[in-house]
Design a protein around this nucleic acid. Structure first.
Lengths: 194, 194
DNA sequence: TCCAGATCGTTTTGAATCGAAACCAGGTGC
DNA sequence: GCACCTGGTTTCGATTCAAAACGATCTGGA
């Protein structure tokens, strides 16, 4: 290699460009034409979000679109049997969307998995550093746009330890299971640290 | 932070998810409604690509779309005065697209720059490592899809040192200036190493 | 209690985008 | 000279999406 080793540091621009490329590669493929990119995103979201967040609004936020558009995407998935809708008891306006068995099977052939496989060659330490760097960039971006990056309760300041061994959300006054604190939450807006 | 420090390594999935988020954030914003995301991508491409690559086909490859769609995007930009079209002398079918002064001004307010700014908080060493990791993932992805990731001549096996001090492409039998070897090239398909 | 205003969600409508396919013109090889 | 390939354009239809108007429900204050 003639000169790739010249000591010019990879610029911020390179990282941004690469993230853009990778993101588009991950988003674009619809893999067999079973679902559209937006529908895949919805399935991914409802697979990752906790019970407070699996709503049309939650998905609209996550996908950075309007509630109208999100409603259409969700409706198409409900019609195809990929999601079930359960009206909320507390709030008559709201409904919770849940994955069906069919969508869980579908998710196992998510075209996004190709990106996950492509990341396998990195060593754990590299994965950690890379994830940290990307998270930092997303955080800064969220601050600049005065919005919040998607986050899990485990990183949120509202999380509290119970005196037993469980966890607990100070904002919603709800107990959280160990598994739930790894899921995405629309209320975890505290930018990674309380 | 109650448990974010538990010693579970950031998984490949986290990195892939973050890249997807960041990529979508960078692609989606159209920043003031002057241009659509696809049009921004075209401007970015024609700003980065070398003279062998600034064609409709080159952009179609880069943007992972059809030549028909790419043609429409390019036409709209030519009509608005953002690009000029010059027919090739060697090949009567082909034409080269070049940025105008107007588009150079426009690029200075590319919404993508927000992502570049957001990366500024990282230290140079981190930027290097992160870029390397992302490049590796893209490379693997390209191999799996039997396509090639966008690359610059500086990383390509076709590049050769002249006996003077310049560079030279063995594939196209063309001299390359020092500046040109940093630009993207559609022929640099050798996956980073010759 | 009642009202204003905010929020969750749906529907409609129009515009924009995109991909597939047909097509033209110029190049390449036999 | 012929068939075939490649760069590029055009047309057409489907899809997607955002904006806006709307109904229903919740919340807070007077």
């Amino acid at each position: 290699m003639p000169r790739a080793t010249r000591a010019r540091p990879a610029s911020e621009r390179s990282v941004a460009e690469l993230a853009l490329q990778l993101g588009r590669a991950a988003y674009g493929e619809s893999g067999g034409d079973t679902l559209t990119p937006a529908q895949w995103m919805a399935l991914r979201f409802f697979a990752r979000a906790n019970r407070f967040s699996r709503t049309v609004s939650g998905f609209a936020d996550y996908h950075a679109t309007t509630r109208g558009t999100a409603s259409q995407t969700v409706n198409s998935l409900v019609a195809k049997g990929y999601l079930t809708r359960t009206r909320s008891l507390r709030d008559g306006r709201s409904a919770t969307l849940d994955l069906t068995e069919k969508s869980r099977r579908q998710l196992s052939e998510d075209p996004f998995e190709a990106v996950v496989r492509a990341a396998r060659t990195l060593k754990p330490a590299e994965l950690n550093r890379t994830a940290g760097a990307l998270r930092g960039i997303l955080q800064n971006l969220a601050v600049e746009r005065e919005k919040s990056a998607p986050a899990a309760c485990g990183l949120c300041g509202h999380l509290e330890r119970d005196r037993n061994q469980g966890f607990h959300c100070r904002l919603l006054h709800e107990p959280l299971s160990a598994r739930e604190i790894d899921q995405l939450c629309v209320h975890c807006t505290c930018n990674g640290r309380g």
